[in-house]
Design a protein around this nucleic acid. Structure first.
Lengths: 97, 97
DNA sequence: TAAATAGTTCAAAAGGTTTTGAACTATCTT
DNA sequence: AAGATAGTTCAAAACCTTTTGAACTATTTA
């Protein structure tokens, strides 16, 4: 009996690595991390110098991967890093492999 | 003094996540890991059911990312997982971010 | 209420990755 | 030496991701 990752877990793992495999998304995560409190998408987008359309696309991917969590307050959308996803899928990746 | 990723390190980080963001390459790594000794590319390729051209492409990417190490012995190329790259860029990613 | 701000959606264009088959080099077997 | 096996390279095709601008919704400010 071979220990193997099932299809569902593997798909999520790939979605996470894809989300992380992009310079803009890494900058976004770096920015959110260093502010260390929920921050509006617009502020992050301005900090990393991207259009709001492009920002919307990147935030959607990060959220879909479970790497960030978003809360909409009135006009703005505040994002936070989801450390537990990082723990499970990134930090503990080699054990899961 | 803030610990930040410089451009060169960031590029390597992205190359690593790109290499990991693919189901075939994850299967390749899983196979190499579970044999737990250097294994020929042909054997891995057969195990994960890909053409030799496609295998050659994927092994090249994994090696370029530093995730595997290859040694050519006569006709065959034997691959091994480079655990130190995983440690630095995957396991310790959140600290580096 | 009009204008400004925050963000989303859509489709097209631009750009990047992966697969394919054919042709190739090198080594091994008969 | 001829044929089989291991792997590489190349260019084209197929496929996938990202950026762009315009049009949109919802909230806030004047």
């Amino acid at each position: 009996m071979k220990t193997e990752i099932n299809l569902g877990q593997d798909a999520q793992q790939i979605q996470i690595f894809k989300a992380l495999a992009d310079p803009i998304r890494l900058q976004i995560l770096q920015y959110i991390k260093q502010t260390d409190h929920p921050v509006a998408c617009g502020e992050v987008g301005r900090a990393v110098n991207i259009s709001k359309t492009s920002g919307s696309y990147h935030f959607k991917l990060l959220e879909a991967a479970g790497l960030i969590t978003a809360e909409k307050i009135a006009r703005e959308k505040y994002v936070t890093i989801n450390w537990s996803t990082f723990e499970t899928y990134v930090t503990n990746f080699t054990q899961r492999l």
